[in-house]
Design a protein around this nucleic acid. Structure first.
Length: 282
DNA sequence: AAGAACACCAACCGCCGTTAC
DNA sequence: GGTAACGGCGGTTGGTGTTCT
């Protein structure tokens, strides 16, 4: 039997970068038919693209509500907070950052956490060791990617596969394997967290508390990356896009579940004042 | 000036959940 | 209830621009 997973796209289906013409065509058809029925749009528009490809292009690039440019410090902080809470639930995190896509946040996370991990490696690595022919940097970079994710990017309290380290099992997550790593000279996540907390406390004049090794520390440590949140009040009741000319689709940044609603977070009004100011929907 | 390394980001892939039939 | 189609999500890759050596 032919299952959907065995099915392949027709050979003539276009791949790769989108042309301006294709963008225009897609925008036109989305405006006509809405952000649904992507397969239909793909076929009907004459674009030799899959529905998935069309959707992705729209969501990640063409959507009028998208923000461009670097993440603001507030956004960075929010990403950090939310990632510490939800792990690699990028789309969910993205809903908390109007104008940002899951792809963008994912990319940001990978890039910046890697950078952070590298900075940390440098900070943590002893000046030089005569006992070892290689420095700590090469130790890390010699690890396979997956392994690096666990050892380095685990600073998020999640491995890069998205496994959440839940209540009290930080030590379990770092587990046997990490003991082995430590024995080999790798750093445990616990150590990494301690070092990050220490560095952040020294480098950034943070007043946030830093705890390591229990459930509380997940968020507390997250705050310690940057200055602590100044406001944890619920969003202002009037933060609506209705008065704005900006078009922000409900489907992209709506709240998706009760947990979202319950979660206390800094007001988004704090974040998007200038370039996205009025286009916020909750 | 040239090559290497790094950073960024768009796009694809595979899996999974939901929906329609 | 079973199956196929579709849409969404997270992981990964590859191209390109920028910075470093």
């Amino acid at each position: 039997m032919m299952t959907k997973k065995m099915m392949v796209a027709p050979e003539e289906t276009r791949k790769g970068p989108w042309t301006e013409q294709e963008d225009l065509q897609l925008m036109c058809f989305v405006s006509l038919f809405g952000e649904r029925r992507w397969d239909f749009i793909a076929k009907f528009s004459g674009l030799n693209r899959t529905g998935k490809s069309c959707r992705l292009r729209w969501v990640n690039y063409l959507h009028p509500g998208l923000k461009r440019g670097r993440m603001t410090p507030q956004e960075e902080r929010l990403v950090l907070e939310l990632h510490s809470k939800w792990g690699n639930r990028w789309s969910r995190i993205a809903r908390r950052l109007p104008g940002r896509t899951d792809n963008e946040i994912k990319n940001y996370w990978r890039t910046h956490m890697r950078k952070k991990a590298q900075e940390m490696k440098r900070a943590l690595s002893p000046p030089s060791s005569s006992s070892s022919p290689r420095d700590s940097t090469s130790r890390f970079s010699d690890l396979p990617d997956d392994h690096q994710n666990q050892v380095i990017e685990g600073i998020s309290l999640f491995d890069d596969k998205g496994s959440t380290i839940t209540n009290g099992d930080l030590a379990v997550s770092t587990g046997d394997q990490n003991e082995e790593e430590i024995a080999k000279g790798y750093y445990s996540m616990d150590q990494i967290w301690k070092e990050i907390a220490f560095m952040e406390q020294n480098v950034i004049s943070s007043t946030g508390p830093v705890y390591v090794g229990n459930e509380e520390h997940k968020e507390e440590v997250a705050y310690s990356f940057f200055s602590p949140p100044t406001s944890m009040a619920p969003p202002p009741p009037s933060s609506s896009s209705s008065s704005s000319g900006n078009y922000v689709s409900d489907s992209l940044w709506r709240m998706d579940d009760q947990e979202d609603i319950k979660m206390p977070l800094p007001t988004m009004g704090d974040f998007f004042v200038s370039d996205y100011g009025n286009g916020i929907e909750y």
